[in-house]
Each structure stands twice: as structure tokens, then as C-alpha cells.
């Protein structure tokens, strides 16, 4: 009896220990988030003591490494959004239509072959897309637009668009599949053709899920780094012309990291202020996408 209760005690102590250890593991992810926010904010505070947030968020010149120094983040934001939107223009309609094709039309066999092939595109490292843009897409574009510079936003848009394509298509496919069968059958029974059902019932029914897929993909494009660094160049400017070279927020962080800017200087702190802006932007997009998808799921439960 005494032995048995001793054993039980030991087993329960072990139980508590394991529970505590796994809880600690789970807390690491919370600590990571706190760490990210702490690092970005604490390093940015020093920067915002010198440069007013007003100047930072409304200035249209970004030349922190050259005299006369200017710290307006808008050109970087402009470059980032231009490439993300451009990539979205390529990936969003194409991805949605791929999802429609695979989930509504394609035979089971075709689906089994095509889907993993497309997912390969999502597994390709972004540095590879950058190299592809530089050595393949830009030369190809140059045969149509001869005056296109080596570094340009257009080829970055194209490769980032290809990169986020599988994400748009597989998330949209999930959304389309979630639309109940009776809605489709109802519309078919009323005499609608298959295409009319898809355009008039399935896509509108899946809209918030599809929207969430779009936003997630755009957030991914906003945070993308290596492809845009290699393809779009390093000239921060306010332009909407895709044939020019632009710089994104992430590409700027890479540029400073590559150089030998001394720690603790204002120039060095810029990467944290830019990082904070990038983080807030992607976080907002991700939260929005999650809200949309939660609402979407509730609708068909």
C-alpha cells in the first residue's frame, strides 16, 4: 500500500512537471511576440526622438544614407504597395480562376497532378524568384520594352505574383469548397448553367473566405524581401511607373544590413522604424483576414 501510494505520488509529480514544461514551451511563442514588439518599439523610440513621426509618415523623400538626409517613409511604402498590388493584380484573378477550375471543373485525376505541381511554386525560396526575375523575366520583358532598366518594379511584380499564386488558389479553393451543396443544387434546379451557378452563387457565397485569401496573399507580398531586393533595386522614390526601379521597406532593411552602418547611429535605427511600420502593416492585414475567415466559417456552420 505504502509502495503503491509512493508510486502514485511520483507519477503525479511527473504529470505536473510535464505539464509545466509543455506550458513553458507554449509561452515561448508569446515571448516571441512580446520580443518582436519590444525590440521594434524600443529601437524606434530613439529614432522618433530625433525625427518626428509626422516627418517620418508624411515625408516624401527617403535619403537617410545621403546628405541632405531626409526621413520620409512614403517612398518605401509606395514601392512596397506598388509591388504588392501589382503582384495581386496578377495572382488574385488567376488564383481564383485556378481554384474554380480545380474545385468545380477538373477531373479528380487532373487535380491530383496539377495541385502538387502548383504547390511546388510556393515551396521555391524567394531568393530563387529574385534570381529568376533578374536573369529571365527582365531580359524577356526587355524584348518588348527595350528601354527597361536592369532593376525594375515590373519584373518584381511578376515573380512575386507567381510566388503568391498557389497561396491564393489553395485558400480560395478551401473557401469555394465550404459553400454548401444545396445552394448550388438550388440554383441548378432553377435552370442556371454551371458557370452561372459558380459566378452567381458559389463565388458570392464564398466571398469573405476568398477576400481573406486575397488579403493574406497581399500581406505575404508586402513582407516579401529577397525577390524584390534582387529584382526591383534600391532606389526609394515616389513613382507609380512599374518600369522604374523602386525600393521596398524590406529591401531597405537588407540594404542597410549589407552595408557597414555603425550601431547606435540614427541611420542604423531607421531599420527598426521601417521594420515597425512593416510589422504593423502586415499585422493589420493578417488580423483583418482572420476576422473575415472567422465570420465566413460561422456563416455555414
Amino acid at each position: 500500500m505504502a509502495i503503491a501510494s509512493g508510486l502514485t505520488k511520483k507519477r503525479h509529480a511527473k504529470e505536473r512537471l510535464v505539464r509545466a514544461v509543455t506550458l513553458l514551451c507554449a509561452l515561448v511563442s508569446i515571448v516571441t511576440t512580446v520580443g518582436i514588439v519590444y525590440v521594434l518599439v524600443s529601437e524606434s523610440i530613439g529614432f522618433f526622438m530625433e525625427v518626428s513621426p509626422w516627418e517620418f509618415f508624411t515625408g516624401t523623400r527617403w535619403t537617410p544614407l545621403l546628405e541632405p538626409k531626409s526621413f520620409g517613409v512614403l517612398p518605401l511604402l509606395n514601392g512596397t504597395m506598388m509591388i504588392a498590388v501589382g503582384a495581386g493584380i496578377i495572382a488574385v484573378p488567376t488564383g481564383l480562376l485556378i481554384a474554380v477550375h480545380l474545385s468545380e471543373y477538373a477531373a479528380q485525376r487532373t487535380r491530383r497532378v496539377v495541385k502538387p505541381l502548383l504547390e511546388l511554386l510556393a515551396g521555391v525560396p524567394t531568393i530563387v524568384y529574385g534570381f529568376f526575375a533578374l536573369t529571365f523575366v527582365t531580359p524577356l520583358l526587355r524584348s518588348f520594352i527595350p528601354e527597361l532598366p536592369v532593376f525594375n518594379a515590373l519584373s518584381a511584380m511578376i515573380v512575386v505574383g507567381i510566388m503568391i499564386l498557389p497561396m491564393v488558389s489553395s485558400l480560395s479553393e478551401d473557401a469555394l469548397a465550404a459553400v454548401p451543396k444545396d445552394l448550388r443544387e438550388g440554383a441548378l434546379a432553377l435552370g442556371a448553367t454551371k458557370g452561372e451557378v459558380i459566378r452567381g452563387v458559389v463565388i458570392p457565397g464564398a466571398l469573405s473566405g476568398v477576400m481573406s485569401a486575397f488579403i493574406l496573399a497581399l500581406a505575404r507580398a508586402v513582407g516579401e524581401t529577397m525577390a524584390v531586393t534582387l529584382a526591383a533595386g534600391a532606389t526609394a522614390k515616389m513613382t507609380l511607373d512599374p518600369t522604374e526601379s523602386v525600393q521596398t521597406m524590406s529591401a531597405y532593411i537588407v540594404q542597410v544590413s549589407l552595408g557597414d552602418t555603425p550601431q547606435g547611429t540614427l541611420e542604423y535605427q531607421t531599420i527598426f522604424a521601417v521594420g515597425l511600420t512593416l510589422f504593423m502593416l502586415t499585422l493589420t492585414m493578417n488580423l483583418l483576414a482572420n476576422r473575415l475567415v472567422t465570420r465566413f466559417r460561422q456563416r455555414y456552420v
Partner: peptide, 18 residues
């Protein structure tokens, strides 16, 4: 879920500072 959406370069800034 939100950590999964943080751009990789931001993790780089975290690694640099910590």
C-alpha cells in the same frame, strides 16, 4: 496564427537585437 504572418525580415531584426 499571427506569428506565422510576420515577415521573415522582422524575425531578422529580432535576432539582431536579442
Amino acid at each position: 496564427t499571427n506569428l506565422a504572418g510576420v515577415p521573415s525580415i522582422v524575425y531578422g531584426l529580432l535576432g539582431l537585437a536579442i
